[in-house]
């Protein structure tokens, strides 16, 4: 019976999207540690290229998954980190874009732009930088 319930639970869980970290063609491939530094404001340039990371708004499913899988933080922790950093005058959190279309358009047209997206929405205009 318990095994049956576990299987049932797994079956009714919504499938988590497969995320890819994407960027403008000018951005080099990334490892996870570098990605974490970029999204916490510690790294602002790579190989001479100025970086512009973008996020979805808080509690967006893709953002939640990105924070958990790539930054290894939860929303509260991440928001709290940036609240302090912003109010000690050491920078502001990544710009927030509201739709997949906006993200794809911004990244395709902005040198140094970085974001993340569901694999099913990938287009040839953006470069995959990291995939877990």
């Amino acid at each position: 019976m318990p095994i049956f319930l576990i299987l049932l639970f797994l079956l009714v869980q919504p499938a988590a999207a497969d995320l890819s970290i994407i960027g403008h063609a000018t951005v080099p491939l990334l490892d996870q540690a570098t990605l974490q530094r970029i999204y916490t404001g510690k790294t602002v340039a790579l190989n001479g290229v100025r970086l512009t990371p973008v996020n979805f708004p808080p509690n967006h499913p893709l953002r939640t998954q990105f924070l958990r899988n790539y930054l290894e933080r939860d929303e509260n922790d991440y928001t709290g980190y940036w609240t302090v950093r912003c109010y000690v005058g050491k920078g502001v959190p990544p710009q927030e874009l509201h739709s997949v279309t906006e993200v794809l358009h911004f990244i395709a047209n902005t040198a140094g732009a970085i974001g993340y997206i569901d694999d099913s929405d990938l287009t040839p205009e953006v470069k995959v930088l990291l995939k877990k």
């Binding site: 602002v44 340039a45 100025r50 512009t52 912003c86 005058g89 920078g91 502001v92 902005t110 140094g112």
Partner: peptide, 16 residues
């Protein structure tokens, strides 16, 4: 209130 203006080239302005 705080206003942060950041430019891609690394310059920024902060007013609080």
């Amino acid at each position: 209130v705080q206003l942060d203006v950041t430019h891609q080239n690394g310059w920024g302005l902060t007013l609080q």
